[in-house]
Design a binder for these strands. Structure first.
Lengths: 146, 146
DNA sequence: TACACTATTTATAAAGATTATAAAGTAAGG
DNA sequence: CCTTACTTTATAATCTTTATAAATAGTGTA
């Protein structure tokens, strides 16, 4: 399942003339296998064992490359650092305001909103972003147990 | 119009036991009168004339206070610094990918999305955030004139 | 397989945004 | 007017991200 995604991603990179380095391979592999929406530093730390000499800059550089190619989305929330998300199917995020957990959920695309926005603002609309904020079940339970 | 908003905001602060300092007054006044979604530094620079000794920390501290009280929303996009938006009625943002311009547009709240998200994820949902991305008219025209 | 060309990595420093700290100042209630 | 606790200021520190230049390593080609 995720091996297919990884292979597709690598093919996609080759198609745009981006070289496949071991570091890039590992970063992509980590992103594909991850459901935790890691930060650049998370990735850096996770690959430290395999690449003791890898630079943080490499992680940032490649995340930017992946983003430009469209393989990865950058999520910027209020907190300090960006999180990165391997792009699969269209989905949105629910974010816990207590513990920061991010849970995916699917919803039919908000095409109607895009159309209205385009009409009202005169923009040529390319896409949108949406997140839902709240408190996850774990944190709700913890609160009730006060 | 905006004087009312400002007065309401000040009352709202008083109600939560936050002191009204000249700096806070000025920052709020600037936010109410601004349609440009300023960064902390924008605000700092704008009030430099009136408060030559004001510290950047003051701006950040107060923006955080305002956010906690619910007077202000923090907008975090991919770029370096957060933007701050005085909360009035519910509206969303269309953002130009070329020049960065932010245009407000109204849309009936996405309650349905919140409900679905709550159902699927088990979250107690408090709110959401959405933006539309695209190219504004000015930039479209510039492109066509190449 | 070996070569050459160029993209990429590394190591380091620099930039930029935000926060922490402690001393000095000041709003607000009594 | 006074007191007290909250704020501001000034400064330094932290943290994320980017820039730079030298060393390294993919990839197409012979």
């Amino acid at each position: 399942m995720s091996e297919v995604q990884l292979r597709d991603a690598l093919d996609s990179l080759k198609g745009t003339g981006v070289r496949i380095t071991p570091q890039r391979h590992a970063i992509l592999e980590y992103l594909v296998g991850s459901t935790s929406h890691p930060t650049a530093d998370d990735i850096y730390k996770a690959l430290e064992g395999k690449f003791p000499n890898m630079s943080v800059a490499t992680v940032y550089n490649n995340l930017r490359v992946f983003r430009q190619v469209g393989l990865v989305k950058e999520l910027t929330y209020g907190d300090s650092s960006s999180r990165f998300d391997f792009v699969t199917t269209d989905h949105y995020h629910a974010i816990c305001e207590d513990c920061g957990k991010i849970v995916d959920f699917h919803y039919p695309g908000l095409d109607e909103v895009e159309q209205l926005a385009s009409h009202v603002t005169g923009f040529k609309v390319n896409g949108h972003r949406m997140e839902v904020y709240g408190v996850c079940q774990d944190c709700s339970v913890k609160k009730e147990a006060h």
